[in-house]
Amino acid sequence: MANAKVYGVIALKGGVGKTTLVVNLGSSLARDFQKKVLLIDANFSTPHLGLHLGLVNPKHNLHQVLNNEYPAYEAIYQHPLGFHILPGSLVPLPGDPLVLKEKIDPLRQIYDVILIDSSPSLNDEMYATMMASDELLVVSSPDYPTLSSTLHAVTVARKKNAPIRGIILNKVRKKKFELTAREISKAANIEVLASLPDDVKVLAALAEMTPVVEHTPNHEVSQLYKKLAASLIDETYRPPRMFKRARQSLSKIGKMLSKPEAGEPHEIA
């Protein structure tokens, strides 16, 4: 029986790449490492996880779960890439975010990894993610405003006794004027787990509502996401050889064409 590790992905600033990180880690963990993965959209005020994955306006969603309309497992969708999604309502509904932990804890038995996409606001929505997570991944980018937000988030997490796994430095352009991973790590006193480039391929993938690790799997940014995914489960990522890639693609097509079985999660239309 699986006993999921729950990672909360936080940042006290919008646009740094929380949802993109969640989507790509989830996809890589499911596809490259055959893990049972659930992505949860706990950004209750502005839930956009579904929009990254072709799930535009989910009929079943986490907001309804918070409101006791049905249990969490009934609001889960199966993505063609193999992972599951517990989306938010595109039009946010009222609900108490602080019951998130209570609602999702039973799902730990089903999954290997659960990734929670948090709100960028310092309120009960973010506290809910902190409380529900085993470890936090703090997303930052190499500029002063984001560093300030990062240090703030780290301070809050420490006050809440929420363990921090590390910082993910995103949207790095390798310019001299940027803050370096070392400077950010030193300022926060937390390890930087990965430095991900500011890559237009990520936007191209988003336009197709596909994780970049699938959209452009051999690109630098995709390889870095995969390495990071591996490190979260204490594994090492080795780029597959050409024939293995072809086999995976065939397998992917097969999965996408297979019919759903009774009692399985909802399919994305």
């Binding site: 300030s148 240090l151 703030h152 301070t155 803050l179």
Partner: peptide
């Protein structure tokens, strides 16, 4: 120029740290 920029960076980071710690 490089060293000066690094010093400036450190000074700004230090100010941010102090502000957050005091808040």
């Amino acid at each position: 120029k490089v060293v000066s920029k690094n010093h400036k960076k450190k000074a700004v980071i230090s100010q941010i740290q102090e502000a957050i710690a005091s808040g």
